[in-house]
Design a protein around this nucleic acid. Structure first.
Lengths: 236, 236
DNA sequence: AAGTGGTCTAGACCACTTG
DNA sequence: AAGTGGTCTAGACCACTTT
């Protein structure tokens, strides 16, 4: 499994920040020489990282570390679409930022000790000029030490890009669990809906390399006009 | 794109029934000779078909056409799990079988003319000895000509395996849209729940080769104890 | 023109399964 | 022992991007 070894070393380079998001990798010949393997083996490792959206190859230009920009966020992590299938980047409104302690459930999802210090962020996401989603985001306060309300509000790009550029945390995949639930009072107030309406609740654990939990997020979605979409066909 | 050509030919062989579900493909050398390409090119084509769960390779044994058996159904198409993540194969109870005509929505999803003849199947799925899911399945009556209530009731294995063995329709992927909805009277009766309870509604279009719609299904899920699960990490 | 990734070849050797 | 897929090599040639 030589190529697995190569893949691990490439991931280590990305995780350590030795190659920056958006930056180029050395070319295939250089990598082959450095790792002492053939170009075919390099290609195999890079192909898998491209399939995982961690690297990006462009013929004639080079191989680049994927940035968690808007386009990728929409493609990989934003699964809400209009009834007609139309997708739109949401307007994000920051409503609260606080430090507190993890509940038992949150600690378990993030792989932390119970009552570990966490940061909490409440966002309201707008689609078609209406508040549709209430996100409650929970982060390990140690991993994101120094994150402030100001920094969150000032950011350009997605929150995942902020994790990547400011804290070296690259989100590579997410697991989501969806259920129907009556709307709670806090979300009802933020979304301007009646308490008890049937809404979607999405629990998401976003993970970094080696399945390390990076973020836990609960989204309450007014699904009267929007769906959670899964299993879109891969382009072939 | 030689390997794409090889892939198309392999798919044609599977779709035409020239190789049966569960049957073995010729070995790599034989395929390379038949198509006049190198083994590497055969491998590339087969690798993609394996990634799409259409073929299955076993070192030392051979390459086989994937059967839509219980294991694959659970892995690829059954996305309901207990709160603790535990997965269980449901007991399927056939409650109704009828011929009628497609609604505008159904026709659109199946790529049929409005009011085209369709078959309708109502199943109740049991998990942990309780009715949890009401499936309403709509099929193109032409594509599944000859399907009877008896044949459905007698089947061994999953309904997708029946599509494959009896009608040559291989389901290769599915797109699902999920929302929260108050429970309708018919599903309420079948699930033994109060009308208006908040439940998950899942609209699924299952597709065959070349994105051809094969089945449209609406599932109503009592999500008090079960979740819809998406984006599980790929094994690496 | 030079440099990059994309495709394809023709083999060698290994690991695993079956008779 | 024979046959299968799994990994790896060392190149050739092509398509594309940049200078």
């Amino acid at each position: 499994m030589l190529y697995q070894e190569v893949k691990r070393k490439l991931i280590a380079d990305i995780a350590s920040g030795a190659v920056q998001p958006g930056g180029a990798l050395p070319n295939e010949r250089a990598l082959a020489t450095r790792f002492g393997v053939s170009i075919g083996t390099i290609r195999r490792a890079v192909e898998e990282l491209v399939a995982e959206h961690i690297l990006l190859r462009q013929q004639g230009r080079g191989t680049f570390v994927g940035r968690l920009d808007q386009e990728r966020f929409m493609f990989q992590f934003f699964n809400i679409a209009g009834r007609d299938g139309q997708r739109e980047f949401p307007r994000v409104e920051l409503r609260a930022f606080a430090k507190s302690r993890a509940s038992a459930e949150e600690a378990r999802r993030l792989g932390l000790a119970t009552a570990a210090p966490v940061l909490r962020i409440d966002n309201v996401l707008w689609l078609q000029q209406r508040p549709v989603i209430h996100d409650h985001i929970v982060l390990d306060a140690q991993l994101f030490a120094g994150l402030t309300r100001q920094r969150l509000g000032q950011r350009n790009g997605t929150i995942y890009e902020l994790y990547q550029t400011d804290f070296g945390v690259t989100v590579v995949d997410a697991e989501e669990r969806v259920r129907a639930e009556p709307l709670n009072p806090r979300s009802a107030a933020l979304l301007g809906l009646a308490e008890g309406s049937a809404v979607l609740r999405i629990d998401r654990v976003a993970r970094s390399f080696a399945q390390k939990p990076a973020e836990f997020r609960v989204s309450m979605v007014d699904s009267r006009d929007f769906d959670y979409v899964a299993g879109r066909a891969a382009p072939r």
